[in-house]
């Protein structure tokens, strides 16, 4: 049993994916918060802490990569150290090193594999 409910911030511009991810992770007993773009993420992160951020790379206003770099640049080490998992439909356009250099810990390709989603979120919130 988990000691406390983990907070997950989902940054995804597609409401469908957003809802889907939320529903799935809610079922897994995660506390879900959502953002529509990178700016919203930074705004929400400024107000509160999250255990993990799932970030769509391809987002309007501020894309995932830029957002990730901004997070890593935050002074609050707690906030800047939050595991970020990228969700991308163009995984091949990036190497793992590209992601790492942006501060993204891992990625989940689209179309989403729900098992993978759950596994990875669990993995990074329990570590």
């Amino acid at each position: 049993m988990k000691s406390s409910t983990k907070k997950v911030l989902i940054a995804e511009d597609s409401s469908v994916i957003q809802n889907l991810t939320r529903k799935i992770l809610q079922m897994q007993n995660f506390d879900i918060h959502v953002a529509k773009n990178g700016e919203q993420v930074l705004q929400m992160l400024a107000k509160e802490d999250f255990d993990i951020i799932l970030m769509d790379i391809n987002m309007p206003v501020m894309d995932g990569m830029e957002c990730a770099r901004s997070i890593r640049d935050l002074e609050d080490t707690k906030k800047s150290g939050i595991p970020i998992i990228a969700i991308t439909g163009n995984a091949k356009n990036f190497s793992m090193e590209d992601f790492r250099s942006a501060g993204i810990n891992d990625f989940i390709p689209k179309p989403l594999n729900f098992d993978e989603l759950v596994t990875k979120v669990n993995q990074y919130t329990n570590g």
């Binding site: 597609s14 469908v16 994916i17 889907l20 391809n58 309007p60 439909g89 689209k110 179309p111 989403l112």
Partner: peptide, 20 residues
Amino acid sequence: LNALHTLKGNSGTLGAEKLA
């Protein structure tokens, strides 16, 4: 392109293969 990308992603994720 953005719209297509989103469409590709959510269609694939929901199993709408032809659309994706």
